[in-house]
Nucleic acid binder design. Structure first.
Lengths: 344, 344
DNA sequence: CGGTCATCCGAGAGCGCTCTCACCTCCGCC
DNA sequence: GGCGGAGGTGAGAGCGCTCTCGGATGACCG
């Protein structure tokens, strides 16, 4: 913790370069309309003084902050613990950095925090928000919409409010699930079970829908609710085996769930994939590659989702700032691909 | 993405309340020295107009941003994928929120980013920085120190630069390791092996030192380098079994490593803890509780580490702002506790 | 009832930057 | 050679806030 040094101002640079503040400002912001020799002199002065523009002063007049809030609702902090969110955040960070935007992280926890986040966003401290809140009936999306800040959601928001102008980026959960189940069916399996994710999240609901799309009149006993965790997967698998000992395939809502299911299957003496074929979802490498046998799963490009969210948002922000860049941005659903490994 | 509304200014509130800007400002910032009836009138006006102070304008004059940067060096992004960093971040977030500070997240990737981060911090956009960069010879800590921003490190920084005034928060890795190994020795084990973490991180080095403290003249064959991952643990365990088939205990540098080691031990037909006792480090619940058998491990309060880092930093920031709060903050090493489960 | 303080409030000067607008220079053209 | 215009540059007015300082107000005492 060292001492504060007085930072040089535009004024100081102007004086040193023997020009006006306006000229220095022009050079610092791209340098259009300034003749070469002057540009050079200003650059030199900036260099020598170690000048860095004062963002606060700049924001005050431009009304831009070059900062984006990433809002993560509490329940997601769990998700945080799996690589999923970390990867998305990384994609976001890369994209924002590439456009000289800062990432302000807001983790929320309970109702009070919602109000706080709402106030913060409404306060105009950031140019936009990326929101992760995929739970049904979460008040956050509504609050945020009211705050009037450009927003992109991570995953289809599952709330029942006004849908107009809502932009989100999601994987094709339903299509991916269909592919997974079709793959199992293609293997000749007929008793295909599904362990769902936490059904208060849209991704879990969509994957279940995808399963149902293919298994139009599936035995309801073949569907058990999980919660995206390995222990949830174990529990669900045990229940499935008790209910339907004749099942010959399992589509798990994510890789962690599949990992739990695999453990239980092995413990029950069943061979994977010979007796029971298993497909997961996510293709989280550390998990999918390390299960025994390696997991066949549905891959989604998570980092790219993050990138895309940021890109979409920045476009929206610019548009709003008066630089029309085509029509209003609309939601994007990214395709998934089935990755075949040993488990199915 | 809705439309921008013109936000009310201090001026507007003042007009509505029939007072001067100065008075409104006083009320907004705590309201000392303003008589009750006026306070009331101003509050009402603020409420009615939905006034939110413009942070940029405020920062411009106060030179405070109420924002803290959290810098995570790239290699740590992996760590990110385990719950460790997520938990720390949560602790940080809570503490910052409680003090009305924002969290600006900076993920770095390679040299270019270092420069960028250095510039950002030197640019005085934030009041302080929390830095996670525990790798030997990382240039980042040096850069940051030069930027002259109050900084607290997460974990003992392992770099060889100027150490004066460096503040960090760390677990008692060495002491925890000693406890683990002593516990194994207390169980009557004599051939106690150690799978290290990635030795370019100080935590791994410290844990190894703790192991050596107890096993003063350990057979060097009993020490194998891991990398904090399950697969690294598996590899190391296989090598250990090849080298020292007579080992009767393993101290793994973290829980993930231990999980990998357990798998290999089981595959080799050894009983845990009867044939080989195993102790991990971290007490990451989702891992430690789900291994088979449940893992005896060294617990560290990760969230509290994050909290503490933030608290220390804020104190330093305030101090610097001219409110002396006792002496210079100094580093803190948090105690660890051994959690006995089934594996040792 | 006048004087003395303490207390409360308002006027006004910036914080460091951007951006408009007027001015100035210098070129090309008739 | 004079004049229009394009292209560069600088002066100055704010952006919305904080904070100092002087003036007004009322309490209290002699």
């Amino acid at each position: 913790m060292t001492e504060t040094a007085p930072r040089p101002t535009l004024e100081a640079v102007a004086a040193r370069a023997g020009v006006s503040r306006a000229t220095v400002s022009r050079v610092v912001n791209g340098g259009d309309g300034v003749r070469e020799p002057l540009v050079e002199r200003v650059r030199k002065a900036v260099e020598e003084l170690g000048y860095v523009p004062n963002q606060a002063a700049r924001s005050l007049v431009t009304r831009r902050h070059d900062a984006i809030a990433v809002v993560v609702a509490e329940p997601e902090t769990r998700v945080f613990a799996d690589p999923f969110f970390a990867l998305q955040l990384r994609g976001i960070s890369k994209e924002l950095t590439a456009h000289d935007n800062q990432l302000v992280l807001l983790l929320t926890e309970g109702r009070d925090d919602h109000a706080r986040v709402g106030r913060y966003l409404a306060g105009g401290h950031v140019d936009g928000a990326l929101v992760f809140s995929l739970h049904l009936d979460d008040p956050l999306p509504g609050l945020i919409q009211r705050a009037g800040v450009p927003t992109v959601f991570g995953g289809r928001p599952g709330w029942s409010g006004d849908r107009r102008g809502v932009v989100y980026v999601d994987s094709d959960n339903r299509g991916g699930a269909r592919d997974a189940v079709r793959h199992l069916a293609g293997l000749g399996r007929t008793r295909i079970a599904h362990i769902t994710g936490a059904l208060d999240q849209t991704s879990a609901v969509d994957r279940l829908d995808g399963y149902r799309d293919v298994m139009v009149d599936a035995d309801p006993d073949l569907i058990v609710e999980g919660d995206f965790t390995p222990s949830g997967g174990e529990r669900a698998m045990r229940e499935l085996l008790a209910r339907c000992p004749d099942l010959d395939a399992v589509f798990a809502a994510n890789d962690l769930t599949a990992a739990g299911a695999l453990r239980v299957l092995r413990a029950s003496g069943r061979q994977v994939p010979d007796d029971v074929a298993v497909v997961g979802f996510d293709d989280m490498l550390p998990v999918a590659e390390q299960t025994d046998p390696a997991l066949t799963t549905v891959r989604q490009d998570i980092e790219e989702m993050g990138r895309l969210m940021a890109r979409l948002l920045l476009r929206g922000v610019d548009r709003r700032a008066g630089e029309p860049v085509g029509g209003a941005p609309s939601s994007v659903v990214l395709p998934t691909t089935l990755v075949r490994r040993a488990s199915a």
